[in-house]
């Protein structure tokens, strides 16, 4: 699971109001290089929740992103875009869990696939 996917998912349990971001418990992290597409990244920059990405990236062992939301002009920097690219698309959670920030419920991640299935009483 890429951190871009993590950035778009919230806890889906009944009654939870603040289900984002899911806390990551990493057990196995892998990196898979992909092509660098600056236009895509510039477009994503305005849609991403920055803090969630920067925190997730740090937990995943990549601490190169600034904590504070950067100014929009940062997307003109190639150096910045390469770091953003790496954090967003190349770092994968292969094994571990996503944890609901409100209830502590763990959603396991196996072979890179988060299991977000709910129990009957959570729907």
């Amino acid at each position: 699971m890429r951190l871009l996917t993590h950035n778009m998912l919230a806890s889906n349990i009944k009654g939870v109001t603040n289900g984002f971001p899911l806390r990551i418990e990493p057990e196995k992290i892998i990196e898979k290089p992909v092509d660098f597409n600056p236009d895509f990244l510039k477009n994503m920059f305005s849609k991403i929740d920055w803090k969630a990405l920067a925190d997730a990236s740090k937990i995943m062992g990549y601490a190169e992103l600034p904590d504070e939301v950067p100014e929009q002009t940062v997307v003109e920097s190639d150096e910045f875009l390469r770091k953003f690219h790496h954090a967003l698309l190349e770092v994968h959670l292969e094994e571990g869990a996503l944890v609901c920030p409100e209830t502590g419920r763990r959603f396991p991640v196996n072979k890179g696939i988060p299991n977000m299935l709910l129990h009957e009483d959570e729907v």
């Binding site: 871009l4 996917t5 950035n7 778009m8 849609k47 991403i48 696939i113 299991n115 977000m116 709910l118």
Partner: peptide, 14 residues
């Protein structure tokens, strides 16, 4: 992602 379509909670307009 393993989930029921109706139960997944999406953030943002990505």
């Amino acid at each position: 992602i393993q989930s029921e379509i109706k139960n997944l909670q999406w953030r943002g307009q990505i």
